[in-house]
């Protein structure tokens, strides 16, 4: 009966987020941290971190290493506070390190974006995702970017099957030794010019897997990384906003 479908569609309503730059995430969400000037035992604070993301004098948090467990902010609530700012993707690795007193958003350095990215990919960006020992959390969030809520397809951003049809690769996971060759083969198959994005803490730094004998991250030493998207896993809004800013620039967003 067609009436069933009408009922379903009525319940379904409009699911898409009209402006992906605007949604507010709830309080416990951990986005960009802010570190106050309060004096604490810095060594004790740093030793809490499971991935060594906390630096000392001045205190800093490397979002490329942070797994967002929040233990530092529970132990030192007046020193470290995670805001709900999810726009934390950048093209400059150093910008992921948030220092004491930093309250500015993490942003993309427009001068460092390769010229061909915005001219060629501004309205259509096709990506080949490579899960290289990704845990399936990052992968699910990337899939969610294309669902009825985040719907990045409307911006021309899409994941495709064949690297031959793509403009770049997106790597999730810390890159296992067993996937190292596949990553290289897949990257080589993408036509020039092409971009590389690292999505998730595991991909950016190895995350909790640093020190494992089962990884081989040598691929990353050979190329320029065009976008770092931190998170454990990154929120779809972090990915969509980061990519949009990279391919279109801030103003056109």
């Amino acid at each position: 009966m067609i009436f069933d479908e009408i009922k379903i569609l009525k319940q379904h309503g409009n699911q898409f987020i009209p402006d992906v730059t605007k949604p507010q995430l709830p309080g416990p969400f951990k986005g960009r941290p802010e570190i106050s000037a309060e004096e604490v035992n810095e060594m004790a604070l740093a030793s809490l971190c499971p991935t060594g993301a906390i630096g000392t004098s001045p205190v800093s948090i490397d979002m490329g290493k942070c797994v967002m467990c929040g233990e530092c902010s529970f132990a030192y609530p007046n020193k470290i506070k995670f805001t709900t700012d999810y726009k934390i993707a950048t093209n400059i690795r150093e910008r992921l390190i948030v220092k004491e007193g930093d309250i500015n958003p993490i942003s993309i350095d427009e001068n460092k974006i390769r010229a061909e990215i915005q001219s060629l990919f501004g309205r259509s960006l096709k990506l080949r995702e490579i899960s290289a020992a990704g845990s399936n959390a990052d992968e699910q969030e990337l899939n969610a970017c294309g669902n009825v809520n985040f719907d990045m397809g409307r911006f021309g951003i899409e994941f495709l099957a064949s690297p031959r049809h793509c403009d770049g690769i997106v790597i999730t996971g810390p890159i296992s030794e067993n996937m190292a060759e596949a990553v290289q083969v897949c990257y080589d198959a993408v036509p020039d010019p092409k971009i590389i994005m690292l999505v998730g803490t595991d991909a950016i730094s190895g995350g909790i897997f640093v020190g494992s004998g089962a990884l081989n991250r040598s691929f990353l030493e050979k190329y320029i990384i065009d976008l770092y998207v931190p998170g454990n896993p990154p929120h779809p809004l972090t990915f969509v906003n980061g990519v949009l800013e990279m391919i279109r620039g801030k103003k056109k967003n």
């Binding site: 899960s131 020992a133 030794e177 067993n178 596949a182 494992s212 089962a214 990884l215």
Partner: peptide, 14 residues
């Protein structure tokens, strides 16, 4: 096997 990250070993190391 492609996804092997040595996680059981990491439980001892970390």
């Amino acid at each position: 096997g492609w996804q092997h990250r040595g996680i059981e070993d990491l439980f001892l190391k970390k």
